[in-house]
Design a protein around this nucleic acid. Sequence first.
DNA 1: CTCTCTGCAAAATGTTTGCACACTC
DNA 2: GAGTGTGCAAACATTTTGCAGAGAG
Lengths: 151, 151
Amino acid sequence: MRHGHKWGNKLRGCGFRLTIGREAIVDILSHTNSHMSAEDIFFALHADSPNIGLTTVYRTLELLEKNGIVSKYEFGHGRAKFELTEAYGNKPHHHHLICRKCGTIIDYSDFMEDELAYLKKTEAGLGKKYKFTIHQHSISFFGICEKCGAS
Amino acid sequence: MRHGHKWGNKLRGCGFRLTIGREAIVDILSHTNSHMSAEDIFFALHADSPNIGLTTVYRTLELLEKNGIVSKYEFGHGRAKFELTEAYGNKPHHHHLICRKCGTIIDYSDFMEDELAYLKKTEAGLGKKYKFTIHQHSISFFGICEKCGAS
DNA sequence: CTCTCTGCAAAATGTTTGCACACTC
DNA sequence: GAGTGTGCAAACATTTTGCAGAGAG
């Protein structure tokens, strides 16, 4: 499997090396459903690979982000969160529901048809009007989750 | 004018005091079109009110955010950015276009009818399905601005 | 006059960087 | 073997906190 990963080929193709650490990090990311911070990943790694430092996690995430393999989100609870991009992960296209109290993040993939119609139109219009090349969009809803109780 | 501000009344109503610093900060925010960081506000303030510390800026912004007077955004260039909420500012409902290279933020208010239709449906559906009380939404497009050149 | 608000300095947090060694290709 | 990648420790930047004094109501 060492040389069969899509992301690995992508990195190699750009002249980067495939290392144990990089594999371990992508592996963690592809086996989780949650949105992990650099520290989360570091600790998850620590059980099996105690010799991978937090620095490497940060450097790897940066590299992966620059190569379109992970997405970085800053939802506002201090630390940035990461997940594999649609192209390299196994989550469907989705957006986020973020609880203002506990910080829980819920992925949702509902209503994507409606969204698509809206986005397509908007992206085209905005790109033209502001001469902006749009690469990505982010739609998030903030509020209070069931557990934290409505107010 | 000291006691006539909507935001001031809101604060007072909640038992908080109206101070020079708080007025100055809201004043700066209501006279700018850009998205300012705490430090930006601190320096903008410094000309007229050199005695207001950065700590106060942070504490005030936190208070204002908790009372729904300002919105805090973390777009990912390190520092958080603030702007008055729709209810207390004078910007129309809008969203953001963020340049990945230079960090420029463009507000846009176009296509709001399409958005409204999509959002209304989605919010209702999500709220119901995930038992989530939605307070706010955020739609952002990321890409490369005209100045930074498309790629 | 009471109690909140503030400035200052110090701490805490998340992230980045320099350097010598380790490992991939 | 050449050159990228890594761990460690230290540097950094932003934001938060403790405390004694200042100011609002």
